[in-house]
Computed example of a mutant assay.
Amino acid sequence: METEAGKMWGSLPPVHFFSHGSPMMLCETTESSDYWRKCGDEALAHNVKGIVIMSAHWTALGDQIQVATNPAPRILPVGFVPSHDYKHYPLTPDLPTAQRCLDLLSAEGFTVSANPHYNWIVDVYIIITRMFPLGNPPPTTVVSMNARYDPHYHLKVGSTLRQLRKENYLLIGTGGAVHNLYRNRWMPMIKYRDSLAMETPPEEWALEFRQSLEDVMTRTSGPQLRRAVTRLMKHPKFRDAHASDDHFMAAVFVAGAAGDVDDEGCHGVMGAETWELTNMANLQVTFGEWSNQGAA
């Protein structure tokens, strides 16, 4: 039996938690890159109005959060990957939606400001370029994290911007499921530029946290999802899986955007998974699906 809540989330665009992985994900063909392309094709087919993406690599200090308002951003360079793989990709900043995000966040009491100097960072353009490889990305707004990494703060950011889904915006958190740079096996990437080489299986701590994250995202929904995601920061393997909190905040943001009371029954679906550097788990999880209404 379909509930009223089910009818509500079923009419909204999905929300994506994307693990962007290492810079090599810009050029490697994987199950994750294929899934990103699929999600991009679906967004275009449903005439998505724009994309709002929270960046794990951009943090604001103090109690602030920032929204990108650079009208002509550049792509910041990245190691290991030749610049011709991304240098000339057309960026599409969305200044009107950036102002809308500023207004929504300010109305909810956030100390929020515009950043007219922000240039796109690898975690954002890996996702955008792989979702829209033909160079036709929808207008995109980038929102920072806050460097205190309070999970309840980032939940509220997601819940505040959730209403943009009602206007056909796609919300994305770009981070990592298991992302501890100190515990990766870097030698194959350093010697051969191969992040996918797996001389040994992932270690137990990485597998355990990865499974716990999947369980939370695929078996809980609504406010329970929000509580369960924040509780993962108390998981005994959390600090092994995340030496710093930044890449996990993307999951918290997504829980805020997809964990309203009206989202009860909307469980995450594992779209793809790619392991890199032995211990880096790149899970791609989607909450909800596009309605057939409005499809091109």
Results as ranks from 00 to 15, higher is better:
Q284H: 12
Y182G: 15
V157Y: 13
P23V: 06
V229F: 04
A281V: 12
I128Y: 07
S83F: 06
L95T: 08
S33G: 07
L207Q: 06
A295K: 15
E204M: 01
L12R: 12
A281I: 07
P90H: 12
C266Q: 13
D262H: 06
H46K: 04
P82Q: 10
F253W: 03
T29F: 03
A60C: 12
I53P: 05
D123G: 09
W275G: 03
G265Q: 06
A60M: 10
L170V: 14
A197S: 10
L283D: 04
M280K: 03
A45S: 06
D262E: 13
T111V: 01
T286A: 05
V81A: 08
D260S: 09
R226W: 10
Q66R: 14
R193S: 07
L76Y: 04
P133Q: 05
R210V: 01
Y118K: 02
A251K: 04
C39I: 04
D123S: 06
R185D: 14
A114H: 06
R183C: 14
E276R: 05
T286I: 13
Q224C: 13
K49Q: 10
A295Y: 15
Y118H: 11
T230Y: 14
F287Q: 09
A107F: 08
Y153N: 12
K237D: 15
I127G: 08
L105Q: 00
T30V: 11
G256V: 05
P223W: 14
P139W: 09
E289N: 14
T274S: 00
Y182P: 13
D94L: 02
V143L: 08
D215R: 07
D246K: 03
